[in-house]
């Protein structure tokens, strides 16, 4: 599904990513790990075209995302849940959903269908459609950010630390949505810092260090204590 090869990107003169390779497959949850400042968010932004790729390919089912104008990337079927949620704070819940649908299906009937389908996953949002997004609780904001991304009807779903600062029941709700999306056949690419949250969830873990690939683990490999220990070592915990 997603195949990144030799990706270099950064801000201005300073490179952040230096030749990163990464794969994410349909029906799998790929977890991207790395210390603070390793370049995880930068990688997500590079996939979205928000940070220009200086070298390398970002191939999504044969389309090179790095060659597209940034606003065309979501139309290829990429939904983005950014770090810190980044909702349109002054817009209502319904309007945030509406913006998401704008990058989704073209005809009104399938738009309505997608909207209904997404809201079914988040009943709490349904009760708050008129509320300003900025006044939602942290958990509700995360739900809305996830809902907005699902409105694109993505085949690739990017989530950047979606459980940061949430209580356990919220974390569980977000996790269930990710599992449901994987089982629907989406490729899920998740940035997550907490190893215990990753172990039961990930089909594959990629670690990056200082903008370079450090190591990859499959689900089976992570069940071995030795590999889990090595992963902890990469993250310094």
């Amino acid at each position: 599904m997603l195949k990144i090869e030799g990706l270099s990107a950064g801000y201005g003169a300073a490179p952040v990513l230096r030749g990163v390779n990464l794969r994410a497959e349909a029906g799998e949850i790929t977890v991207l790990m790395g210390r603070n400042g390793a370049g995880k968010t930068t990688l997500m932004k590079a996939i979205m075209g928000l940070v220009r790729a200086e070298a390398g390919d970002i191939d999504l089912d044969g389309a090179d995302l790095a060659q597209l104008p940034p606003h065309m990337v979501p139309r290829q079927g990429v939904g983005y849940v950014p770090q810190g949620r980044r909702l349109f704070a002054d817009l209502s819940v319904a309007q945030n959903i509406e913006v998401g649908l704008g990058a989704g299906p073209k005809d009104a009937a399938s738009r309505r269908a997608v909207r209904a389908e997404v809201l079914e996953l988040f009943p709490r949002l349904q009760e708050r459609m008129g509320q300003r997004a900025g006044t939602l609780s942290g958990g509700e904001q995360q739900m809305l950010a996830t809902a907005r991304a699902l409105c694109v009807r993505p085949k690739l779903l990017l989530l950047d630390e979606p459980t940061e600062g949430l209580q356990p029941s919220m974390i569980e709700a977000i996790r269930q949505v990710m599992v449901a999306m994987r089982d629907k056949g989406l490729a899920v690419l998740l940035v997550e810092q907490r190893i215990d949250a990753v172990l039961g969830l990930a089909d594959r873990v990629s670690v990056i260090e200082m903008g370079r690939n450090a190591e990859n683990f499959s689900r089976a490999e992570l069940t071995e204590p030795e590999n889990a220990r090595r992963l902890r070592g990469h993250l310094g915990v």
Binding site: M48, L50, V73, R86, F88, A103
Partner: peptide, 13 residues
């Protein structure tokens, strides 16, 4: 409100 996020949702800013 957020040009970068608008782009990420298909708006040609």
């Amino acid at each position: 409100l957020d040009g970068e996020m608008a782009t990420a949702f298909g708006i040609p800013v």
